[in-house]
Amino acid sequence: MPIIELNNVNKGFGPASNRSEVLADINLSIEENEFVAIVGFSGSGKSTLVNLLTGLEIPDTGTVTFEEKPVTGPHSDRGIVFQNYSLLPWLTVTGNVELAVKQVFPQMSKKERRDHVARYIEMVNLTPASWKRPKELSGGMRQRVSVARTLAMQPKLLLLDEPLGALDALTRAQLQDEILNIWDQEKKTVVLITNDVDEAVLMADRIIPLTPGPQATLGKEFRVDLQRPRDRTTLNFNPEFKKIRNTVTQYLMELNDEAKRLAPVKDLPLPDIHPIQFVA
């Protein structure tokens, strides 16, 4: 039984006269405990897709169903980690996580809540900085807070919207490993939105490309059957890893070329006019 399903989903923005159809005919089905990566170019509608999964947006046509019930709005069962962290700058690390915990588990006693918050902060290795405010943290640390906040809500489905996009390569690698560890421990369903094929191959069970917009749709999917845990140091020499990476990259490049070819030609014919010669 799939945990979340999208059926013939279309989504566009703007008034009828100037409408841009962002997503068209999206069909997606994700099984429990799966790690799915959705890869796409920037501007292809990845964020719209993740908003649909979260419930922040409702499809124009088609259905989004979570555990066989239609999605009508956000729910704590579907936790999202935003690309830009979205932390509340006036709260400390603990405060940010606590706000979410208070909301999702209102019945918790004060002590239970404190322990719960502390556990998730520990999980992302931020205990020493738990009293700091987001402004005092590096990008990687901020994203960790965001991950802790979302995990603390104990969602069944974890949506990661380009969570590592703004980080430097080293921090990125470190956080990828941490996310994989957590996924391994907590056994959650994860949807990772990314524009990095390497990241997708390293982390996911299944890679689904999103074709370039407008009217983006999901392309041919690729299974990644690499042994877990995947070790990034040896992975570069793994022929299977290389093969998948190349196929996916190749596929994306072809999609891009095709999109460019199919894009309407916007050459405006120039009128045949000449400037008048003024003679002083």
Binding site: L56, P74, F82, N84, Y85, S86, A100, Q103, M153
Partner: peptide
């Protein structure tokens, strides 16, 4: 972004006012 947090956490009107909007 802060409003999105409020939406995702499904904060009530008063909580949203006192925890997000006013701060």
């Amino acid at each position: 972004d802060h409003l999105n947090v409020a939406k995702v956490l499904r904060l009530g009107w008063w909580t949203r006012l006192f925890k997000i909007v006013i701060p």
